[in-house]
Design a protein around this nucleic acid. Sequence first.
DNA 1: TTAATTCCGACTAATTTAGTCAAGTATATA
DNA 2: TATATACTTGACTAAATTAGTCGGAATTAA
Lengths: 165, 165
Amino acid sequence: MRLTSKGRYAVSAMVDLNNQRDQGPITLSAISERQYISLSYLEQLFRRLRESGLVNSVRGPGGGYLLAKDAVDISVADIIRAVNEPVRTTMCENGIRGCHRGQRCDTHQLWESLGLHIYRFMDSVSLAQVCAKDAVLNHIQLGDVARYLPADPMAEGMIKIEAIS
Amino acid sequence: MRLTSKGRYAVSAMVDLNNQRDQGPITLSAISERQYISLSYLEQLFRRLRESGLVNSVRGPGGGYLLAKDAVDISVADIIRAVNEPVRTTMCENGIRGCHRGQRCDTHQLWESLGLHIYRFMDSVSLAQVCAKDAVLNHIQLGDVARYLPADPMAEGMIKIEAIS
DNA sequence: TTAATTCCGACTAATTTAGTCAAGTATATA
DNA sequence: TATATACTTGACTAAATTAGTCGGAATTAA
């Protein structure tokens, strides 16, 4: 999980796309103007968003981009994952096994787990939640981070998140 | 909040430091060997960790680094924040007000809020939690992400996290 | 005094981010 | 059909960040 301004750009663009979803296909130049992101850079980002199945494209005049699914089914993590390269594991050559110099990297699983947590958290925030607050309050309330649940509750213990205020 | 392998290195080093805390000051070369991080790069990272008050240094032979506070009082976010440059806000020139070209950047507060969430989550995981599981299971259980609370519960609503399994 | 070790600044290389450019291809519409 | 619109693609560049390297200076235990 990488978190840089690249992901920020992508999230901003997707928010824009969803906010304008009644207008039919949205052109990148329109997004470019509203979000102050260069058209060419948006082209790069949307190539990836399309390849990840998050947006559909319509070519020709009147064309543009549309969300491929409902905003409640798109998480912030989906968007960030789409535009980022897969994380380069600098410390470990292979995946979860066999770390470099033939020795076990004893912090590998540790970071894997921590990364998983962050990932799940980001996956718990949907584009719809982000957009709703953007439109209404321009601000996300903590209480709206609905549920933060592991894919298999039995596997690793389970956390319940409740808004209590 | 930026999340790259730089932060990973720093967290790994801090985990190592805490795991060896009974041994007195720990030299960077020892950490370098155990964690496969170059000594010079560790020097860069520890300069920042020291400036942020997360570690104390002891110079001269027998010297090295020690955690400046108890591991329960150091969050993963503290560590990552320490080694990273302050985030460059590419889209907005000033802080929370006055975005570029004189116009209001309508996704600024949005991302501020989302970033705040991620931040708080990372702040809820302490080095001690990370280390405990590293030593025993080499794995963090979800149920151990103890509390995820805003600094001022009244300000923005409040979330309670409970392990329920 | 000597060796171990942190401290510090300047430098470099690799990678990623951000952005440009110059072509294409598809298609609605005049 | 012609044309303008808009996506698609690949190659390229510049800036920033990451991940180091290097050489020395300061500190201090032995």
